[in-house]
Design a protein around this nucleic acid. Sequence first.
DNA 1: TATGAATGAGGCTTCATTCAT
DNA 2: AATGAATGAAGCCTCATTCAT
Lengths: 191, 191, 191, 191
Amino acid sequence: MTPRTKEKFEEIRESKRRKIIDSAIECFATKGYHAVSISELAAHAGVSKGLMYNYFSSKDELLKTIFNETMDQMLELFDPDSKGLNEKNDLLMYLERYYHHLKSNLILWKMYMAIFSQPAVQQILQKEILEVSQKPLEIIGNYFKKEGFKHPEVEVAFLSTLFSGVLTEYISDPDHYPLEQIMKRILSIYS
Amino acid sequence: MTPRTKEKFEEIRESKRRKIIDSAIECFATKGYHAVSISELAAHAGVSKGLMYNYFSSKDELLKTIFNETMDQMLELFDPDSKGLNEKNDLLMYLERYYHHLKSNLILWKMYMAIFSQPAVQQILQKEILEVSQKPLEIIGNYFKKEGFKHPEVEVAFLSTLFSGVLTEYISDPDHYPLEQIMKRILSIYS
Amino acid sequence: MTPRTKEKFEEIRESKRRKIIDSAIECFATKGYHAVSISELAAHAGVSKGLMYNYFSSKDELLKTIFNETMDQMLELFDPDSKGLNEKNDLLMYLERYYHHLKSNLILWKMYMAIFSQPAVQQILQKEILEVSQKPLEIIGNYFKKEGFKHPEVEVAFLSTLFSGVLTEYISDPDHYPLEQIMKRILSIYS
Amino acid sequence: MTPRTKEKFEEIRESKRRKIIDSAIECFATKGYHAVSISELAAHAGVSKGLMYNYFSSKDELLKTIFNETMDQMLELFDPDSKGLNEKNDLLMYLERYYHHLKSNLILWKMYMAIFSQPAVQQILQKEILEVSQKPLEIIGNYFKKEGFKHPEVEVAFLSTLFSGVLTEYISDPDHYPLEQIMKRILSIYS
DNA sequence: TATGAATGAGGCTTCATTCAT
DNA sequence: AATGAATGAAGCCTCATTCAT
């Protein structure tokens, strides 16, 4: 009997890795980082405790991995073609994208909030957070400058504020928050 | 035991209780609920571990207590005289109050965020949260109705969104967030 | 009911600390450092696992503490009055003391061997070991120099060798090793 | 399957076995038995974890195997031709051999010490140790009897003591221990 | 009222070993 | 013969909570 091929092994690894990550995202979203134990994560993913450490060297490491993957998605969301925002329409589409992403990735954003608003977790991810949050803000800032806003940096902060607010409110009660109408209300400010 | 002595005791008890609560608020704000141990809380408050249980039957109980007291403050903030909002000026003053409260009670709000963004904690406090948040929203809703807004309930949600956003952003980086200018930006929407 | 006095607490602490240490020395002597678990140490000392950490912050820390206390004893043994070795008689008494200490502290020396000959443990104690081993060797070296030995440093190494050998052999089979006669044989070399 | 192929297989098997053993000796020498995991051993030997169990049924089994092979070497060392010690020169050559073996097999002896000083391991190997150590001691004892020593058995113990001591000291700091001079010093006792 | 020693459940992690391929 | 994914027991440690004083 021949041993499994390298490809087969990598296949197994990758699919299990995904399973663990997706499962962990759900758990973290539901209960928060500290409130979920490795045992729970393992059980929820349908693997043994020990196997978790075959894929991630620690609980923190798993968190960082999830964070990085999530951040990559977010970056893509906020600037998919890396061209920046050039006209008003781009900004509107920007808002559109945010709206759709929020709606179709509720769990991901829930996890984002559940995890990253915890001070203890922020300490774990401090470095990563700083690195990632800079770029999207810059892109938006450049747009406002170009458009001749009087206080572009304040306008950026204001938009961030709106994003944060929408996120917070929608996440905390997705069934009742009038997401679409709120997005329209925001659009009305910039139209 | 004379009544005098009894009163004295009560006084001491109450002041120690305050000390524990205030100290705990600081700790929770800085590190989050799960990341702070009873030992740490006791040490930070300058009392023994055992004594903590003399005042609060459990860590959860302490959390609930803090929550309730905080909520009382919030209620007071959003409607100190229970008269509701009657004219535009009231709304502006409303925003003003929020702004000032935020600035002067940073720790309290930090703790609020640190604690509430954790789903596990939210579950513990779910009932309390619902109860408390209803009333201020109603008051604002009534105002918008009276003012003839087309979608008063959306407008309420929008204002909540702004509040949430300001809170989130300010709390996460109080030194750089342009709180005052953002508040002015918001005022400009309603003036 | 009044709380226990500070003295009472310290009394408890000190006596329990001793109990844990003595018990741990026995265990380490019997099975070696890595082969004994904290659970075993706790059970053998008659306390709970958790309490171990009230007294020692980690297993390594316990080891270091035992090492330091043992070393203090050893130092005292090898130079009780800190006067050094001044004449041949001092050296002979030196040997005598070693002999008696060995006989009456078998467990201590067993533990010493069981623990300190393990590379992994040596790494934990590296710093401490270096610090402590210097002084006694110097004292003996000075004596040999004073006595005009041709190669005092070799003579020191030779004596160390004898000590090590006696220790190793005696410890590994205390009932059959002719300790007293070996010590006489050694004395005969220096008389 | 032709006999030729079978032999070839045996050859491969044997060479891989050696590789694993030699690699393990190094690891045990450096870090001690408990401190090295099967994973480490496998990685260091360049084979998979699973394969380790194809050659040795357990970690203990591997240890025992190494011990037995080492012991065979030791026996050979102390009495290569099984003729015993017949004259003083034989004893001196005996010492010589020990000296050279020590110098050229440092790792082996390091492992020997790293492993054997651990009581837990000694228990595993107790029987084997007793069996092996008897014979060389007898040979030396016979020599001392023949030479008319007053207490031949003490003299044997004394020589064992010296061997143990030299081993211990040399192993613990091979770069600084004056091995050659110490051996000369010992020779001087018996010349 | 007040202390801190004491407990034990549960958290994270390691590792010898098994197993499907 | 060979691989490495998978398991689960056991190890170290933390922490909410209890208890004797």
